[in-house]
Amino acid sequence: MPYYPNDERWPDEYHVSPRYLAGPTFTGDPALRPLLDAGWNLNHDDLGNVYVNSPDQKLRLGYLPEGEDDALWQITAYSNAFAAPRWLVTYKDSAPTEIVTGFTTALAKAHAEGPDSYLADRGGDLAELNVGTPLVAAGWSHRFTAADVIFESPDGLAEVHLRRNHLDNAAEMAGNRERWLTLAGPPDQQWYATASSHTPPALVTAMNWALTDPAPVIRYGDDVRLLPPQAKATPVTPPAPTPLDVRRAHAARARSPIGHPAAARHSTSPAARQHSLPKIPAQLSRR
């Protein structure tokens, strides 16, 4: 049935899955909230770009709708306030906001734990593959090439690439190369996320958990038109009112011209998953 935003047959709220096909919510607030709740500082420029810094200035996030490219989210870490960036994580402007929120939630926690959590170096091939465990646990396949390990979602619409070759640090910090590359969505609606070589494994793991979380995300009526055809949008039907609800509604309308109160929104919780680790081919494990 075609979608008409004023047609009462269409509900206002939908559960969308998989979440990596849901698109953004067109507001960065949910992903900024974990950092602001942790006491990080908020600033903005005249163009509408937003900057959030940890109190010690060692972690910085830019929300850049008026940035130089389509990397809407850019997150960096520093050993001290005047050092060069230690690592860089980016998300494209069309990345689902809930997936970015999964990363910023982990980032706020890492900062609270201290530098060993947000500046820890990567630990070699085995640690890198362990970072991919959420992908394998979600049923993603993996294959090895000479330069990459490539994880692929069951529907073939998302991939995560782990580069195994040497990368130039300056190129990574400039956003021209990456250790981890996520690509999700059909070709005409594809978004990306990146993480550089020195991004702590726990934070890359958080990126992958957020990517594979099976819980659907909420999108509203008009946004459904923008979803790719492979996304599943399930209408959220509010429960039938009880006689008590009806009496309360009548009483509320009698007291106020505003009308019906807004229905409560519900979301589901992620399901428990078993961890597993991809087996390293013998010829690669010796490198």
Score class of each variant (00 low, 15 high):
residue 165 N to P: 00
residue 229 P to H: 02
residue 209 W to A: 02
residue 283 Q to G: 05
residue 45 D to S: 02
residue 190 Q to T: 12
residue 64 L to M: 13
residue 179 R to F: 09
residue 257 P to I: 06
residue 248 R to S: 09
residue 24 P to C: 12
residue 182 T to A: 05
residue 70 D to Y: 14
residue 254 A to C: 00
residue 56 D to A: 08
residue 240 A to S: 09
residue 254 A to H: 04
residue 277 L to D: 14
residue 224 V to M: 13
residue 80 N to T: 14
residue 125 D to L: 07
residue 97 T to N: 12
residue 187 P to S: 10
residue 107 L to D: 01
residue 119 L to N: 01
residue 231 A to M: 12
residue 61 L to R: 03
residue 251 A to P: 03
residue 37 D to I: 03
residue 278 P to H: 04
residue 46 D to E: 09
residue 173 M to H: 07
residue 94 S to L: 07
residue 250 H to T: 11
residue 130 N to M: 03
residue 31 A to S: 11
residue 110 A to K: 03
residue 259 G to P: 00
residue 23 G to N: 09
residue 239 P to D: 14
residue 19 R to W: 06
residue 51 Y to E: 09
residue 109 K to F: 09
residue 249 A to Y: 04
residue 33 R to V: 15
residue 245 D to G: 01
residue 67 G to L: 03
residue 149 V to G: 00
residue 225 R to K: 10
residue 197 S to D: 10
residue 271 A to E: 01
residue 130 N to L: 03
residue 173 M to P: 12
residue 278 P to V: 15
residue 67 G to Y: 06
residue 124 G to Q: 07
residue 267 S to Y: 07
residue 56 D to K: 02
residue 286 R to G: 01
residue 5 P to V: 11
residue 284 L to P: 02
residue 281 P to F: 13
residue 22 A to T: 07
residue 264 A to Y: 06
residue 130 N to T: 08
residue 93 D to E: 14
residue 65 P to C: 08
residue 220 Y to I: 14
residue 169 N to H: 15
residue 95 A to Y: 12
residue 232 K to G: 00
residue 1 M to Y: 02
residue 43 N to Q: 14
residue 258 I to T: 05
residue 218 I to S: 10
residue 249 A to C: 04
residue 202 A to N: 08
residue 18 P to E: 06
residue 61 L to A: 13
residue 111 H to Q: 10
residue 81 A to M: 03
residue 101 T to P: 07
residue 281 P to E: 13
residue 16 V to G: 07
residue 248 R to D: 10
residue 275 H to R: 07
residue 237 T to M: 06
residue 144 F to Y: 15
residue 267 S to K: 06
residue 208 N to Y: 15
residue 249 A to K: 03
residue 35 L to G: 06
residue 122 R to Y: 06
residue 278 P to K: 05
residue 50 V to L: 15
residue 130 N to R: 09
residue 107 L to A: 05
residue 286 R to P: 00
residue 211 L to A: 08
residue 248 R to H: 08
residue 64 L to G: 03
residue 129 L to V: 07
residue 270 P to W: 03
residue 101 T to C: 08
residue 109 K to Y: 08
residue 107 L to C: 02
residue 50 V to A: 08
residue 55 P to N: 01
residue 1 M to F: 04
residue 185 G to I: 11
residue 236 V to Q: 07
residue 162 L to M: 14
residue 264 A to P: 05
residue 119 L to R: 04
residue 215 A to F: 00
residue 105 T to G: 14
residue 236 V to Y: 02
residue 239 P to N: 10
residue 30 P to F: 13
residue 97 T to R: 03
residue 166 H to S: 08
residue 232 K to T: 15
residue 193 A to T: 04
residue 38 A to Q: 00
residue 200 P to R: 09
